[in-house]
Amino acid sequence: MSPPPRLSEAEDRQRRAATRNGWLLSAPALVLLFIAASGPLLIVLVYSFLTPGKYGDVSWEFSTSGWVGILFSRDIFDDTLKLADAHLTIFWRSVKLSLLTTAITFALGFPTAWFIATRPPKARALWLFLITIPFWTNLLIRTFAITEIIRNEGILNKVLLAIGVIAAPLRIMNTDTAVLIGMAYVYLPLMVLPLFAAIDRFDMRLLEAGYDLYASRMQVLRHVILPIVRPGIVAGSILVFVPSLGAYVTPRVLGGGKNMMIGNFIELQFGQGRNWPLGAALSIALLIVVMLAMLIYVRAATKEDTPHG
């Protein structure tokens, strides 16, 4: 007489205890995150479908005005909808500056990451530490530091004037260029670190193989190195693009009041704009765009496992 094949009670108990303990131990963190991070996002979603209150906040009537307001504005006189050019300018600036930031940080970050990864081990740890310090340093402080360089009376202008390259100080502050310089400066480490991780795994013997097969340095870079470290490039680009798109501090400090990006535009709705539903709708829209970017990243990262061609 043999027992029917089933999970024994002891085994079953062990399995259930593992699941229960896993959830119980994680519960406090999950509750905290739900209260003070993820849960409130749902409220934002709700607010995006309400009517703006007169003095800020909302009144509890359903309305799509928040979502419509992202792209259109209502004419004060005849109540018709027309494209809100000011909004489009802000979106375009955000996307443009974020893409440019990504491109600049890649152009500067790739040689830097390559340089760090090809140092001898001890020196490499030091260089890596040097790139990590700015990464963890207060973003506001770093933004503030870059203003000292590019201000009208800043170091850059002083040096350029002294060597006679320019006759009058460059007026960089409060322009898109200032925001771009600032974002490239503060987000550069976010590009270098994943690139370094990818290059660090790169087998340098492949270079010997490349040169052995008659490739020039540029051909090796283009046909061997870049395709292999692609996951690092994708990771770095997303890590720079996503916070650039939602940037708030850097455009506020360097762009002055006028050169707003989406982040500042959202804040405006909760301040002087007094249009909370629009602010809420913009937040959700930004979140969706960021999530889509993440999705592309995950896709690109997992695609590496499947063979090419």
Binding site: A18, L33, I266
Partner: peptide, 30 residues
């Protein structure tokens, strides 16, 4: 490994993925 482990992992790392300004606005309202 147990059911929901990946979900817990994703939920814990969620603040890293949401733009700070969005979380800020959400907390302002809440």
């Amino acid at each position: 490994r147990f059911r929901g482990q990946t979900a817990i992992y994703a939920f814990i790392n969620q603040p890293l993925m949401v733009p700070e300004i969005v979380t800020a606005v959400a907390l302002l309202i809440f």
